Simulated assay, not measured.
Amino acid sequence: MYVLTIDQRGSSADVDRVPELISALRGLTPAPFERSVGDELQGVVEHAAEVVDIALHALRSGNWYVGIGIGTVQLAPGGSPREGSGSGFVAARKAVELAKSAAGQVPLSVVSGTMGRGREVPPQAREGAVSSANAQAVLRLIGRLVQQRTQAQWRVVDRLRASQGGEGRHGSQKLVAHELGITEQSVSRAVLRSGWQEEWAARPAAAMLLDYAHSQIVHSENEGAR
């Protein structure tokens, strides 16, 4: 399980965007997200691919700091994230605080539940921490592509994705050009300049790194608890 803590940027000078994001996330994951405190929301997600979807959706608007915590999670079935415990929650809190301090970088951080636990860290925990850092690097690269897209590029990208039932494959540029009332050349340029194909080629890599980090960290923590 992964814990995501997402905090609104510049909330003191903006409207409360938490309900809007909670509603949008229902279309990306069955995991419930709830307001945790102030202009912050939190959720516990089972699958790494959904973590990638959620993180990039939040980064798209530029309104959020995204913290991803990887570690053990104790949460009753159907329970509120506010009732959960475990190193995954601690890591997510650390991650969102690091995202806030990432000046000039994409405001996303991935933190291992083993971080800061003392001098002797088991090899699997070290591997998990390295994989967490690698996942963060890939997500920030993809996030930069997402954040730099223009509204015109998003119109094309959103239609291409919708034409494939939510998948990130190429789609029909001719059909999208017709739907948007633009030329096929315009669609092709938007796809090229938006980095859309690069994004969808890299998403599985980010999910794979998150999966590997999770397997190493949780196994290490379970072994340490014995």
Rank of each mutant, 00 (worst) to 15 (best):
Gly86Ala: 02
Ala125Arg: 04
Arg26Thr: 13
Asn63Thr: 10
Gly165His: 11
Glu199Ala: 02
Ser23Met: 15
Gly43Gln: 07
Gly78Arg: 03
Asn63Ala: 14
Ile217Lys: 04
Val138Gly: 04
Leu25His: 06
Ala137Gly: 05
Ile6Cys: 05
Ser101Met: 10
Pro123Ile: 08
Glu46Pro: 00
Val110Met: 04
Ser87Gly: 06
Leu28Trp: 08
Glu127His: 15
Gly38Cys: 06
Gln74Asp: 11
Ser11Lys: 03
Gly69Met: 06
Gly27Asp: 14
Val37Ser: 13
Leu180Lys: 03
His214Glu: 10
Val15Asp: 13
Ser23Asn: 15
Glu40Trp: 02
Asp7Ala: 10
Ser194Phe: 00
Val45Ala: 02
Asn63Gln: 14
Ala58Tyr: 09
Gly181Asn: 09
Ala125Val: 03
His178Met: 13
Ser186Met: 02
Asn222Gln: 11
Val51Thr: 02
Arg144Ser: 13
Ser12Ile: 07
Ser11Glu: 01
Ala49Gln: 11
Ala225Phe: 08
Glu83Asp: 14
Gly168Ile: 01
Ala177Glu: 07
Pro19Lys: 03
Asn222Arg: 10
Pro204Tyr: 07
Ala31Gly: 05
Leu175Met: 14
Met208Asn: 06
Gln153Cys: 03
Gly71Pro: 00
Ala125Lys: 02
Ala55Thr: 12
Glu127Val: 14
Arg126Asn: 13
Thr29Ser: 04
Ser61Asp: 13
Val121Arg: 05
Val110Cys: 04
Arg193Leu: 02
Gly118Met: 04
Ala205Thr: 15
Glu199Lys: 05
Phe33Met: 07
Met115Lys: 14
Gly118Tyr: 05
Pro19Tyr: 00
Val3Glu: 01
His219Leu: 14
Trp64Gln: 03
Asn134His: 13
Arg149Ile: 14
Ser23Gln: 15
Val37Met: 09
Leu56Val: 09
Ala137Arg: 05
Leu75His: 08
Trp154Gln: 11
Arg17Cys: 03
Trp154Asn: 12
Val45Thr: 01
Ala162Val: 05
Arg144Asn: 10
Arg189Asp: 00
Gly113Leu: 09
Pro81Tyr: 08
Gly43Ser: 07
Gly118Leu: 05
Pro122Leu: 11
Gln173Ala: 12
Ser109Pro: 15
Arg119Thr: 12
Arg159Met: 03
Gly71Thr: 01
Trp196Ile: 00
Tyr212Ile: 14
Glu167Ser: 15
Gly143Tyr: 01
Leu180Trp: 05
